[in-house]
């Protein structure tokens, strides 16, 4: 957390993939907004290699849906929240984006907190792959390519309890029961990630406070 100097908030998330996210805002919009009562969220995803493709647009769309439920946009009407996600290491084959999606969501959450953007709460995400009818949390590159289906699940976490499902992006073939199992396991895993995140945030805030005190 807080690794970049020129933006309001930034965070890096490494888990199989490596993703760095920056948040600037609220700032003045350059374009006219469609919604006069809400803040505008500009989200840019830059892939490690090449130009942004439909794959990035898909990730972007999913992240938007999560942000719509968590960022308190009505506090800053007609303002702009600029979020840039830079993927540094793909970590999975070109046909997949589970790991990326989960890492992006976690990085965005941390960066938003770092930038002190008002949110309704914490959200976390995990990647799950099903290999030979077995659920694998945080799969490796090889496991992703061997899997029959992949799932990226994001939960809203309150008081260290996963309370609401924000997003579930599945790809491949799977049964209804498998999906329920995935959601169940993902909820527990999201809680673990949230605990880990809290620790980091605590550390970040403490370091931040120390720097502020030093300047005074």
């Amino acid at each position: 957390m807080n690794i970049l100097n020129n933006v309001d908030g930034s965070a890096k998330w490494e888990q199989g993939t490596s993703v760095i996210c920056s948040v600037t805002g609220p700032i003045e919009t350059r374009r006219r907004t469609d919604e006069p009562t809400l803040a505008q969220v500009e989200l840019v995803i830059r892939p490690a290699i090449g130009q942004a493709t439909t794959r990035e647009t898909l990730i972007k769309d999913r992240i938007y849906s999560v942000l719509a439920a968590t960022v308190v946009r009505n506090l800053y009407p007609r303002m702009l929240l600029q979020i840039v996600i830079q993927i540094l290491e793909q970590g999975e084959g070109t046909g997949y984006n589970v790991l990326k999606l989960a890492a992006c969501l976690n990085a965005v959450c941390l960066a938003l907190i770092d930038s002190r953007t008002p949110m309704t709460g914490l959200f976390t995400a995990v990647a799950i792959a099903i290999v030979d009818d077995k659920l694998i949390l945080h799969p490796t590159r090889k496991q992703v390519s061997q899997s029959t289906s992949t799932h990226a699940v994001s939960y809203f976490v309150e008081n260290n309890k996963a309370t609401g499902l924000l997003m579930c992006e599945s790809e491949g073939e799977f049964t209804e029961n498998q999906l329920f199992e995935v959601l169940e396991q993902a909820a527990r895993a999201c809680e673990d990630v949230a605990l880990d995140m809290r620790e980091r945030i605590e550390k970040g805030v403490k370091e931040g406070l120390r720097i502020d005190a030093g300047q005074e």
Partner: peptide, 16 residues
């Protein structure tokens, strides 16, 4: 060589 400076580097740069 692709050099594209986004607003991550600094908000003075515009995306796209």
């Amino acid at each position: 060589v692709h050099t594209d400076i986004g607003s991550m580097a600094s908000p003075i740069f515009e995306n796209n």
